[in-house]
Amino acid sequence: MTLKKLITTIAILLLSYQYSFAQWTKDKGKGYYKVSAWYLESDEHYTDTGEKDPNATRTNFNFNFYGQYGLTKKWDLIAYVPFFSRTTQNDAVSRTTGQVLTEGEAVNSIGDIDLGVNYSIFNKNSWALSASLKFGLPTGKSEGGSDGSFQTGDGEFNQLMQLNLGKSFKIYNQSFYSKVYFGFNNRTNNFSDQLTTGLELGTQLIQNKFWLIGRLNTIQSLHNGSLNAQNSQGSIFANNIEYVGLGAEVAYYINKKLGVSFNYSSLLSGKIIAANPSFSAGVFLDVK
């Protein structure tokens, strides 16, 4: 990627996978905190026609903190902080001569931070409805490397408003929860705004011990931003990124609070975005 500003979408994708695996807001003083390592290695990307094309191999790696803290019974504070992000590109080596044709590069920095709140509108019986407001802060590096194409952020401030509807239920005595969400991401710096939708389904395979969660996420561009190659000469910023992503997470509670989780996410389709799957592994603290 990279291919660029794939990072933007990757960050959104990543954040969408960082939620604690539940549909409800936290109670006052309760929280969910996770430190993760996330990795994407991309040697192909979806083009603007939705087809896959090859690209120079880039890796994106970050260490991040995700936290959700219950300010009150209804209000949660949410933070996603990629405190170390690294983007690299491989050396291009001639198959014919073995010579390095283009030196690889690496850029390290902090990534774009997301801060927000979650408000419980309704929580009764097995249903829960909440609204989220998240601010994407351009704290990452929007240009880096010899050609400026190594970024750990998109350089724009965005505001994501989202409604989340969740329900818990049982099938043959097996407990499940499901969550659907719909959001609008208002982007600045001439980027197009985005619609985000998602579906999450989770179950406890072992009571209070082992969770399995599946997620389907989409981002659709409203194509209302003027940023394109025509007016950003030589820029590496791609606008109008879209995708349909599928992910799975397993989480294991080592004790009542501490656990580990592993996440795999891949795209079913997309436009101007890396086509390879990403992985993350984390340690979480669930204060109930």
């Binding site: 390592a37 191999t57 260490f63 590109q89 491989n90 080596v93 014919t96 690889g104 690496a106």
Partner: peptide, 25 residues
Amino acid sequence: KYMLLFVSLFLMQTSCIGEDIINDF
């Protein structure tokens, strides 16, 4: 133990840049 795992991942990531082989004949 988990901190050690993270540090190991960190060191792995900060040390290596791979190679892409280009068919340029």
